[in-house]
Amino acid sequence: MNIPVVLAILVVFAFLAFRKANLFILALAWWIGAFVFFRFGFTAPIPASVISIYMGIVSLATLAFVSSSEQRREEVSRPLLRLMTEKRFAPLLAATIIAIPALAAANVYVQMNVPIEPPFFPRTIHPASPPEITVHEKKISIDLGDNPFRELEKSNPQEFRQHVENGRRVYYQNCVFCHGDNLAGNGMFVHGLDPIPTNFADGDTIANLRETFLFWRASKGGPGLPEEGGPWNSAMPAWEKILKEDEIWDAVLFLYEFTGERPRAREEHAQ
């Protein structure tokens, strides 16, 4: 909801109610108010196709309401009849008669000149991982595996620090160009990439993923994405071509260490 817009509409209606506005004005206000509400009242905008359905319904309803009793018909038609018949309104009438076709023509122009946009294909951002991958001729289970160095965190903190530090090196020699110095997915090549690189520092993404998932994504990259993962657009390299297995695991450690997130634990199989 776009609060200011909604408030503004409410204010206008309060004002109209306070002034005891004529039904014609009210009906007009309802119609315009509904349009403004649908068009601007939502933070996630409603597509034009739906707005036209809604406005069609609102138009029908407004017409039905203003003609639903003798009194209402009378109240609505009076200002219109006066506008159309009384001499002193002649200039206003002329202006209206010209303005409406002009607006309609302008609308036609706008409709015919929307900028061309290339087709857009949605993709699954975190597609499902295969149960097992082979990296450097070693089978690594994505479902059941774990970062081999994670357990060092408790058993041997010093060695763990070394792995993290090595991961830091790997990151800043390889990943920084796209994922950025502060891991926010805003490296120096971002303006040339679509989809944009993952933001590790948003406090959400990697916290929801397992380390093996990150390992899979890092080692197999964009070319290793399954069909639904927006095939072949991702510029994520298949790092197994460049990095050793340990280096990838270390880099994954570093991602969590730098952002202060914890990886998602493996879910125990139900039953």
């Binding site: 699954t124 499902a128 991982s129 295969p130 149960p131 994505i142 399954p226």
Partner: peptide, 9 residues
């Protein structure tokens, strides 16, 4: 069906 092959076995 996403990732179904990883569960099928």
């Amino acid at each position: 069906l996403d990732g179904v092959a990883s569960r099928a076995a």
